[in-house]
C-alpha cells in the first residue's frame, strides 16, 4: 500500500493544497459574512454593510447556480442569465409591480421565482426540441431572454406612467446594488446557507453527471433526479437574487471557468466553493468600481454595467477559442 502513497510529489501536493485552499476560503468567507451581518445595527454605516453583503451574497448565488447548471446540463456555456432565468424573473417582477400599487417584499421574490423557473423550463424544452446541444441551449436562452426583457421594458413604461416614483425599478434592467435594504439580505442569507448545505449533497453526483447519465445511474445516482434538483435550485435561487438586485449578466458563466482555470480541475467539490467565492468577489468589486469609476462626471452607474463591459469580452474569448484556454 505504501508504494502508491509514498511520493507526495508535485501533483499530489498541489491537490492537497487545493483541497485546503477551497475549504479555507469558503470557511473564511462564511465567517466574514456572518460576523458582519451580526454586528450591523442602525448605525451610520448600516447601508454600506447591507450593500456589501448584498453584493457578496448575490454574486455567490449566481456563481453557484452557474457551476451547478454547467455540470448538470454538461454544457460549459450554461449560466442563469443566458438560460433565460434573468429575463423571466424580471418580467414577472414587473408584472407584479403593474398589478399592485403597493408591492409587498414577500411577494417580489415569489413572483421572480415563478417567472424564472417558467423561463428556464421553456428554454430547456426549446433547446431539447432542437437537439439539446450546447449552442441550442444558448440560442434558445437568448431568445427567451430578449423576448422577456423586451416585454419587461414595455411594462416598465406602464409602471412609470401609473406610479412615477417607484424607487429604483429602472436599476433592475441591468442590475444594481443601489437599493440595498435589509429585507433583501434577510432573504439571501438563509438561501446562501442552504446552498452551502446542499453543496455537500450534490457535489459528488454532479461529478458523475459530467461523465454521463448511464455512468451516474450505474453508480446509484438517479441522473434525471439530480438534474431536476439542480435546475430547480439554480432557477429558484438566482430568481430570488434577481428580485433583490436585478439582471446581472456573466457572473454565473465566468466564475466557474475562472475557478476551473485556477484549480486545473472540474471536480465540483473544489469548483463550487471557489467559483462561488469568485462570483461574490467579482460582484463586490464591480459594485465598488460602479460607485467610484465615473463619480467625477455622472455619479454612480449600475454594477451590471461593469460586469457586462468586462464579462462580455471574456465570454466572446471563451466562445471564439473553443474553450481551449488552458
Amino acid at each position: 500500500m505504501r508504494k502508491y502513497m509514498k511520493p507526495l510529489g508535485d501533483k499530489e501536493f498541489i491537490r492537497a493544497v487545493r483541497i485546503r485552499f477551497a475549504f479555507l476560503t469558503m470557511l473564511f468567507s462564511a465567517i466574514l459574512v456572518l460576523s458582519s451581518y451580526l454586528f450591523i445595527n442602525q448605525g451610520h454605516f448600516y447601508y454600506r454593510v447591507n450593500r456589501a453583503l448584498l453584493g457578496l451574497l448575490s454574486g455567490f448565488i449566481f456563481a453557484y447556480s452557474g457551476s451547478m447548471l454547467q455540470s448538470s446540463l454538461r454544457n460549459p456555456l450554461a449560466d442563469p442569465y443566458l438560460l433565460g432565468i434573468g429575463g423571466g424573473a424580471l418580467l414577472s417582477i414587473y408584472m407584479y409591480y403593474l398589478v399592485t400599487p403597493t408591492p409587498s417584499v414577500l411577494y417580489i421574490p415569489l413572483a421572480a421565482s415563478i417567472g424564472g423557473l417558467l423561463a428556464l423550463l421553456l428554454t430547456i424544452l426549446i433547446a431539447e426540441a432542437v437537439g439539446g446541444s450546447d449552442v441550442a441551449y444558448v440560442l434558445s436562452g437568448i431568445g427567451i431572454t430578449s423576448f422577456s426583457s423586451g416585454v419587461a421594458i414595455t411594462l416598465y413604461y406602464f409602471i412609470l406612467s401609473r406610479a412615477p416614483h417607484t424607487p429604483y425599478i429602472y436599476a433592475m434592467l441591468i442590475g444594481s446594488l443601489v437599493d440595498a435594504t435589509k429585507w433583501k439580505v434577510d432573504f439571501l442569507l438563509p438561501l446562501t446557507l442552504a446552498l452551502v448545505f446542499l453543496y455537500f449533497l450534490i457535489a459528488k453526483p454532479l461529478n458523475t453527471l459530467i461523465i454521463g447519465d448511464e455512468y451516474a445511474s450505474q453508480l446509484g445516482f438517479n441522473a434525471k433526479y439530480v438534474r431536476l434538483i439542480t435546475a430547480v435550485v439554480a432557477g429558484l435561487s438566482s430568481s430570488i437574487a434577481i428580485s433583490a438586485i436585478g439582471m446581472i449578466s456573466f457572473i454565473g458563466l465566468v466564475s466557474p471557468h475562472i475557478a476551473r482555470l485556477l484549480l486545473r480541475t472540474s471536480d465540483n467539490r473544489f469548483i463550487i466553493p471557489l467559483a462561488s467565492l469568485t462570483g461574490a468577489l467579482i460582484l463586490s468589486l464591480s459594485d465598488i468600481a460602479a460607485k467610484t469609476f465615473l463619480s467625477w462626471s455622472v455619479g454612480e452607474v449600475p454594477a451590471g454595467v461593469i460586469t457586462s463591459v468586462f464579462g462580455a469580452p471574456l465570454y466572446v474569448v471563451l466562445v471564439l477559442r473553443g474553450y481551449k484556454w488552458r
Binding site: Q70, S71, R74, N75, P76, D134, K204, N207, T208, I210, I211, G212, E214, Y215, Q218, L219, G220, F221, H257, R260, T265, S266, D267, G322, Y323, K324
Partner: peptide, 30 residues
C-alpha cells in the same frame, strides 16, 4: 451500485473534463 459495474462509451464535454485519476475516483463513490 456496489456490486454491478456497467461500462459503455462516454462523450466528455471539453472544458468540463475531469482528469483520468479524478474520473476513476468517481467510480469509488458508492
Amino acid at each position: 451500485a456496489k456490486i454491478i459495474s456497467y461500462s459503455s462509451d462516454i462523450s466528455v464535454p471539453e472544458m468540463l473534463s475531469l482528469t483520468v485519476e479524478e474520473a476513476v475516483l468517481t467510480s469509488r463513490y458508492p
